[in-house]
């Protein structure tokens, strides 16, 4: 074995390791992206777990307009909406509100709400101490459900944000959760 073959081997090893590393990095981008979203406020994602209410001072001099929006996955036979569309709140104040949902289907379904805040930068300052989006929400057929939401707005909220829109998109995850057979065309093997 010549010196050149040996140095070839060494170099190839490094390069292949580099490739594998970059392949791994592609997947590492998934958690890295979440961090990026948190710091930059991409897509207005809020925390997925409850935060503690730790505010002593309520800034009465400032009012933030909070708009609530609801969106249902197409084809999902539910009613879903906020009890109030708009709330005016002071930063630091603990606010309790709720969304109401009704499963109009005849069978029990599991829903998952995905929150999104606009402007995205506001997401960092919108703290939820209780939210129905933290868990999956099973609701029996033909039954209503109350989805409570308790939150406060961080007094650190940048001065140029006056309105925060909180939108929830409700997804039907019954099949995904229960692992039932898909109802899609592939699973059924029928061509309509």
């Amino acid at each position: 074995m010549t010196a050149s073959t040996q140095s070839n081997k060494k170099l190839i090893t490094y390069l292949v390791l580099g490739c594998l590393g970059m392949f791994g990095f592609g997947f590492a981008l998934v958690p890295l992206y979440d961090i990026m979203c948190d710091t930059l406020g991409i897509n207005g994602k809020t925390a997925t777990t409850a935060q503690a209410y730790d505010q002593q001072v309520i800034n009465k001099s400032r009012t933030i307009r909070i708009e609530f929006m609801a969106h249902i996955q197409p084809g999902m036979k539910w009613d879903f909406g906020p009890t109030t569309n708009v709330l005016e709140v002071h930063p630091g104040e603990l606010v309790k509100t709720a969304f109401v949902a009704k499963n109009n289907a005849s069978k029990r379904m599991i829903a998952q709400a995905i929150p999104s805040i606009s402007p995205g930068l506001g997401a960092k300052y919108f703290h939820k101490t209780e939210c129905f989006c933290f868990q999956q929400q099973p609701v029996d057929g033909q039954s209503p459900a109350d989805f409570p939401l308790v939150f406060f707005v961080d007094p650190q909220l940048p001065k140029d944000i006056h309105t925060l829109t909180l939108s929830y998109t409700l997804y039907d995850i019954t099949e995904k959760t229960l692992g039932e057979a898909l109802t899609g065309p592939q699973a059924q093997g029928v061509t309509p």
Binding site: F23, G26, F27
Partner: peptide, 12 residues
């Protein structure tokens, strides 16, 4: 070498 594996990750 730096980016083709990332594409492979994306398609995966």
């Amino acid at each position: 070498i730096a980016v083709m594996p990332v594409l492979a990750g994306a398609v995966t």
